[in-house]
Simulated scan of single mutants.
Amino acid sequence: MAKSTKPAAKKPAPARKGAATPAPKAEAGKIAKTQIIDMVADKTSLNKKQAGDAVATVIDCIVDALRGGSSVGLPGLGTLSVTQTAARTGVKPGTSERITIPAGKKVRFKVATTLKGTL
């Protein structure tokens, strides 16, 4: 019997110092917008372009409602709302100088009790 002659497997080239490694698509535990679009396309009869348009439209509607001062309720997920923050004093890092932080607005998220119970 003759031995088969398979070509030797190539060894991967050693990584060069300072060589850039490709960045992962999403951080561990974080889902990117493109991944949401893929999930919507898989679970519906929409193609990726239509799913992308739908996801972008939903996000735009939520942002517009928050800018208008409205709360946005997402059943099974929670409620997004805008709250006022009061002016306060703080300390500038590095110099320990007292500064005044002006009043502003922030987005608050309250988790739905149904989701909170299943986490």
Rank of each mutant, 00 (worst) to 15 (best):
G73P: 10
S81R: 02
G78V: 02
G90D: 00
K49T: 15
V107H: 09
G52K: 06
K105V: 08
V55F: 00
I59N: 12
S45T: 14
C61K: 11
G69R: 05
E97V: 05
P75V: 14
A65T: 08
T57I: 13
T85M: 10
V58S: 10
T85N: 11
A65P: 05
R108T: 11
L80M: 04
V91R: 12
V63I: 15
N47E: 05
T95I: 08
K110Q: 09
R88P: 04
T89Q: 11
G52R: 06
L74K: 03
R108N: 12
S71D: 15
P75I: 13
A51P: 02
V91K: 07
D60R: 14
G90C: 04
D60F: 10
I101W: 01
D60Q: 15
T79L: 03
P75A: 11
Q50H: 12
R108F: 07
T85L: 10
G76K: 04
G52H: 09
A65G: 12
G73K: 13
A56Q: 08
A56L: 05
F109M: 04
L46V: 09
V82P: 02
Q50P: 08
P75S: 13
D53E: 14
T79H: 01
G78C: 05
S45G: 15
S45Y: 11
S70D: 13
I59P: 04
L66T: 05
G69L: 08
G90S: 03
A103Q: 08
Q50E: 14
V107S: 08
D64S: 14
L80V: 01
T100L: 09
L46K: 11
T79K: 07
T95R: 04
G90L: 04
T95Q: 04
I101L: 09
G90K: 00
A54C: 14
T79V: 11
R67L: 13
A87W: 05
D53H: 09
S96F: 04
Q84T: 13
K48Q: 06
I101R: 00
D64R: 14
T79P: 00
I59L: 15
D60I: 09
V72L: 02
P102T: 04
V91I: 12
G90E: 01
K48M: 06
G90M: 03
P75G: 09
L74G: 05
G68K: 06
T57L: 15
I99N: 00
Q84W: 03
E97S: 03
L66D: 03
A51C: 07
I101K: 00
S96G: 03
K48G: 02
A112S: 04
S96K: 14
S96C: 03
V63F: 13
L80R: 03
